[in-house]
Amino acid sequence: MNKYKVLTDSNLVSLLKQRDRNAFAEIYDRYSMMIYYKVNQMLRDENAAKDLVQDLFTSIWEKSDFIRDNVGISSYLYVASRNRVLNYIQKGKTKSDYLAEIGKYSLQVSDETLEKLDEKDLMLLITSEIAKLPAKMREVFELSRLEDLSHREIAERLNLSESTVKKQVQNALKILKVRLAHYNSLGIMLLIFLRSN
């Protein structure tokens, strides 16, 4: 058994700062797919997302001394990936109004708040709330958010009208936003995961 798999994130960061390649590999294995998913959800560009995530992990290897000991690595990666996406947007590599809105909102959320996020708990919370949606609404919502299908594709797959699909997604968003409203640090998660079509 790989001894690094049982180490805490804090232990891995300490080893990373000592230039331990196996610790770096374990951090990469734990978090690269999650970070890629979030970046790709913001950019909707697989190649750009892969490049940004690769750049991020290269950077943490090269600049591991700059990672503060009291910051969880998942939060650090989340903040760093968000900043790279914002830089990418600001350099004009993409012009989408949707991305501009994410950028504007993201800047309103402090890094300190984001550093306190426990990514796994938040995703479990969101997944749990989605599971509580009415069956048909949940099915439509998951096809929209998890499989990234358009309203038209969902309508064709489920033999529904596009307007019904749109209404189901809107209703799901309303329900989830109400249920998650008291988690004020979820703003970014909601924008990424619960985006509007």
Rank of each mutant, 00 (worst) to 15 (best):
D65Q: 14
N87E: 13
R82W: 06
S106Q: 07
Q90R: 15
L12M: 06
L16Y: 03
V79A: 01
W61E: 02
D97T: 11
E119M: 09
I89N: 03
E115P: 00
S59N: 10
D111C: 04
D29L: 08
L12F: 04
S14T: 13
E62L: 15
A100Y: 15
K116V: 00
D69T: 11
K116P: 00
D121I: 11
E101Y: 08
G72L: 06
D55E: 14
N47M: 10
V109E: 04
L99M: 13
L117C: 11
S81G: 06
E26A: 04
E26P: 00
G92I: 04
M123K: 11
E26D: 02
D111P: 05
R44C: 11
Q41K: 15
L107G: 07
L99C: 12
V71L: 04
S10Q: 15
D121L: 15
V13D: 03
D9W: 08
V71R: 05
K120I: 15
N70C: 06
K50V: 08
I35K: 03
F57K: 02
Y105E: 13
R30D: 01
L52Y: 03
L15I: 05
L117E: 06
S64A: 15
K63T: 13
S81P: 02
D45Y: 09
K120V: 14
K17S: 05
S110R: 08
N83K: 14
K93F: 15
Y36Q: 02
K104M: 10
M33C: 04
N40W: 04
A100R: 14
G103Y: 01
S59F: 09
G72C: 08
I35C: 05
G72K: 13
S110C: 09
N87S: 13
E62F: 10
N83G: 08
A80S: 12
I126C: 07
I60S: 02
S96G: 13
L16R: 03
L86V: 13
Y105G: 06
Y28S: 04
L16P: 02
M123E: 14
Q108R: 15
D9T: 09
E101S: 11
L15N: 06
D55F: 04
Y31H: 14
L12Q: 06
Q41S: 12
D51N: 12
T127M: 09
G92A: 05
L52V: 05
Y36G: 01
A48W: 07
V109H: 04
G72N: 12
N47R: 13
Y105S: 10
S106T: 12
Y31M: 02
D69Q: 11
G72A: 13
F57V: 06
I89L: 14
E115N: 10
N11I: 00
V85T: 07
Q18K: 14
R82D: 05
K95M: 11
L7S: 04
R68M: 10
S110E: 05
T8D: 05
L107M: 13
N47W: 08
Y28N: 03
Q41C: 12
S110N: 07
K95G: 12
D118T: 09
S59D: 15
Q41T: 10
L77F: 00
S10T: 13
Y76E: 06
G92L: 03
R21D: 08
Y78F: 14
S59Q: 10
E46K: 15
S128D: 12
S32D: 05
R30E: 01
L107K: 14
V71H: 06
R68G: 00
I27V: 07
